[in-house]
Computed example of a mutant assay.
Amino acid sequence: MRYLAILFIAILTVSLASTSRAAETIRIAAYDFPPYFSAYDTEHLVGDLITALNASQSDYHFELHDVPSKARFKALSDAGCCHMILFESPTWGWGEQLPQIEKGRVLVSGAERFVAVKKKGQRDASFFQRKDLRFGGLTGYHYPFLGNRTDADLLEENFNVYLSLSHKANLRMLLNGRLDVIMIHDEYLIQLRDQPWFDRLLVNSEPYGEYELRTLVNPEKGFALQDWQRVLDPLIEQGILTQLLSKYKLPWPPKRVRIAPPNES
């Protein structure tokens, strides 16, 4: 009987120790924003960073949650599914939606610009100034030249902007002539440089918007910015973040990538 009691106490002790060592699950929201994340790609920066985070420490287990871009505010709300979001700009509606959000250090400096398809002798940079162009954007994205409006019906009716769910879909429609101009960011354009159709693109030399991408955390959900910094800083110090960014042709420390394709008409 005494042996059974000792055995029970030993099992209980091991069980309690295992429980105390169990990693806390931290859910990271992500939406279509390549190369950071896209459900249409097998590899992306957010996924690579999560793998590195989970391999480098045992206090937290980070999980990726694919959410629609227009639902990212709800995802990080107090009642939402996620604790944080990576590679996001706090200027994209967060101050109005979730003022309690904490923002981390700058991870990437980026820019957005207009892209069309070349037509020899017919199109140059002045093409982007024409009226009645059919634009392609992304659902839930905040475009500064459209007053950061996200209402699809309003953008369609008043600005002739079609909103899709992915950049790949917009690129297909642009190359097929269903859109005249799409809005796209430099960090994705640099991934496309080796595509056989890339030289068909007419890329506006001047971006219409610049931004700084950071980590945004809702501290009211039990995981604060200081907790995030404690797990991210070792990856920075050991050069792991540099390696992950370089895989996607992004520099560390952050600075703008340069897009300079030949744009002759």
Rank of each mutant, 00 (worst) to 15 (best):
L225E: 11
I190M: 06
P219H: 09
S246G: 09
V231Q: 03
K118C: 06
I259P: 00
R130H: 09
A29L: 00
I182E: 01
N218T: 14
L225W: 03
E220L: 11
D194A: 15
D132G: 14
R123W: 01
R2Q: 11
V257A: 08
R21Q: 12
T19Y: 14
E220D: 14
G136Q: 04
D199E: 15
R113D: 07
R230K: 15
L192F: 12
I6A: 10
I85N: 00
L163C: 07
L64V: 07
V108N: 00
W92T: 03
S69D: 04
A224F: 01
S69R: 09
P251M: 12
G93I: 05
N54R: 04
L225R: 04
H65R: 08
I50K: 10
I6S: 02
E24W: 03
C81S: 08
Y141S: 11
T25R: 09
P35D: 00
L202I: 08
F73R: 04
D194T: 15
H167L: 15
I26G: 00
Q191V: 07
M173K: 12
V67E: 01
V117S: 02
R72F: 00
S77P: 07
D32H: 05
L98K: 01
P253S: 10
G137L: 06
N263R: 08
S38H: 01
R130P: 04
L171F: 12
A55H: 13
E24M: 08
R214I: 07
K103W: 10
R105S: 13
L202C: 07
L7G: 08
M183G: 07
I26S: 01
H185M: 11
L232P: 00
I9H: 05
I85V: 12
E206S: 11
L250M: 08
T215V: 14
E88L: 06
K70E: 04
G239M: 06
G47T: 04
L7Y: 08
R130T: 09
R72M: 02
E206A: 11
R172P: 05
W197S: 06
Q191I: 07
A5C: 13
F62W: 05
L225S: 06
Q122S: 12
F37C: 02
V117F: 01
V46Y: 02
F8P: 03
P207I: 03
L202K: 00
P253E: 13
D132M: 14
R258E: 15
D48T: 10
S20D: 14
Q97A: 11
M173N: 14
T19Q: 14
K168D: 15
L213S: 08
L53S: 03
S89H: 06
T215D: 02
F73H: 01
M173W: 14
L45G: 00
L4C: 12
L216Y: 03
A39S: 15
Y60Q: 09
K74I: 09
V46M: 03
D194Y: 15
L201V: 05
T25P: 03
A224G: 09
L138I: 08
F114C: 09
I9Y: 07
L7C: 11
L189H: 04
S265G: 13
